[in-house]
Amino acid sequence: MQRILSLSIVSLITLLTINAQQLEHSTLWKIEGKGLEQPSYLFGTIHITCNVSLDDDVKKALEETTLIVMELDMDDPSMTSKMMSGMYLSDGETIKDYVSEDDYTAVDSLFTNHMGMSIALMENVKPFFLTSMLYPKMLDCPMQSFELELMEVAKEQNESIEGLETIEAQLKVFEDIPLKDQYADLVRMAKDNLAYDKANFAKMLEIYDNEDIVSLLEMMNDESFQTVSGHQEILLENRNKNWISKIEDYAKEQPTFFGVGAAHLAGENGVISLLRQAGYTVSAVTE
């Protein structure tokens, strides 16, 4: 449960990001140069999907590296308690303080239909937790995750797992975004019973399968998601910039396999561009 909820939060953040530049169609990139003795690899994941089969080039990159680093250290035993401590609204607030009676009824129907429980049981839960609970419902298949698959690989190869940021840092992303925008997205999801989001998610999976990381970001430039509007710096750019020095440190220490949401790769302030600006050679790995 801890891992599924963590993945849902990560997925929500990834789904709400945009920035683009011209790049090859690839989700796997080799990091070389600037004194690195051995190359490291950058892999763009999708956190919730139907198929996590790893391509041969990804398997080879995993064999050539000795450490797996993801957005979060998914093995952190304290993750659940840390998430729970940031799960609730403060000062006695509830969802009723942010939405109309009609909108509340729509959200209640959404959770009753898809989660089997009334929103009345979760009125004081923050909106990004509520939204993240619904993401597995957008798949027409049993949920799989590249992060969980990479954890299995780490276990098989007897390797450690590290994280580029803490769960506190990921939770703060949504602390810094106005609640009214987050609730607006939840209400929109409720009013068409996830229809728009399911169609959008299916399109995203198709683009991901084509490894078109630029188009993946471009399709996310969608005004239907108010949480995105005006919050790009919080959702994506600041996090990418914070990761670069950490990626450098890991790569200098040992050949490392970095697995982060594919939405972080492209763009002027994407991880690929920022690593290149830092002096590294970052090249697409294509079969």
Rank of each mutant, 00 (worst) to 15 (best):
Q2A: 04
R3L: 14
R3N: 14
L7S: 11
V10H: 07
L16E: 09
T17A: 06
T17V: 08
I18M: 09
E24D: 14
H25E: 15
H25L: 13
T27A: 14
L28C: 02
P39C: 07
L42A: 07
F43K: 04
G44C: 12
T45A: 14
H47D: 09
H47V: 08
I48R: 09
I48F: 04
I48V: 12
S53H: 13
S53F: 07
S53W: 01
S53N: 13
D55P: 14
D56W: 00
D57W: 06
V69H: 00
E71G: 02
L72D: 08
S78M: 08
T80D: 13
K82W: 02
M83C: 07
S85T: 07
S85F: 06
L89P: 01
L89C: 00
E93Y: 00
T94H: 07
Y98T: 08
S100Y: 02
E101D: 15
A106F: 00
L110G: 03
F111K: 05
H114G: 00
M117C: 03
M117P: 00
S118E: 01
I119F: 00
M122R: 04
T131S: 15
T131Y: 12
M133A: 04
Y135R: 03
L139G: 02
L139T: 02
L139Q: 03
Q144N: 10
S145T: 07
L148H: 04
E149A: 15
M151Q: 15
A154P: 01
A154E: 00
E159T: 12
S160E: 15
E162D: 13
G163E: 03
T166H: 04
T166R: 02
I167K: 01
E168I: 10
Q170W: 05
Q170S: 10
V173D: 09
F174M: 09
L179C: 00
D181Q: 15
L186M: 05
R188Q: 12
D192P: 02
Y196M: 09
D197S: 14
N200Y: 13
F201K: 08
F201C: 03
A202D: 15
L205S: 06
E206Y: 06
I207V: 14
N210T: 12
D212E: 06
M219H: 11
M220Q: 14
N221W: 04
D222T: 10
E223Q: 11
F225E: 10
V228Y: 12
G230V: 01
H231Q: 10
Q232D: 13
Q232S: 14
E233N: 11
I234K: 07
L235C: 05
L235G: 05
E237P: 01
N238D: 13
R239L: 03
N240C: 08
K241N: 10
I244Q: 01
S245R: 06
I247G: 05
A251F: 05
Q254K: 15
T256V: 11
F257T: 06
F258T: 01
G259C: 06
G259P: 05
A262W: 01
A263R: 11
A263E: 05
A263L: 15
L265G: 02
G267M: 10
G267V: 11
E268T: 15
I272T: 08
L275M: 12
R276L: 12
T281Y: 06
V282N: 06
V282P: 08
S283D: 13
A284D: 09
T286I: 14
E287C: 09
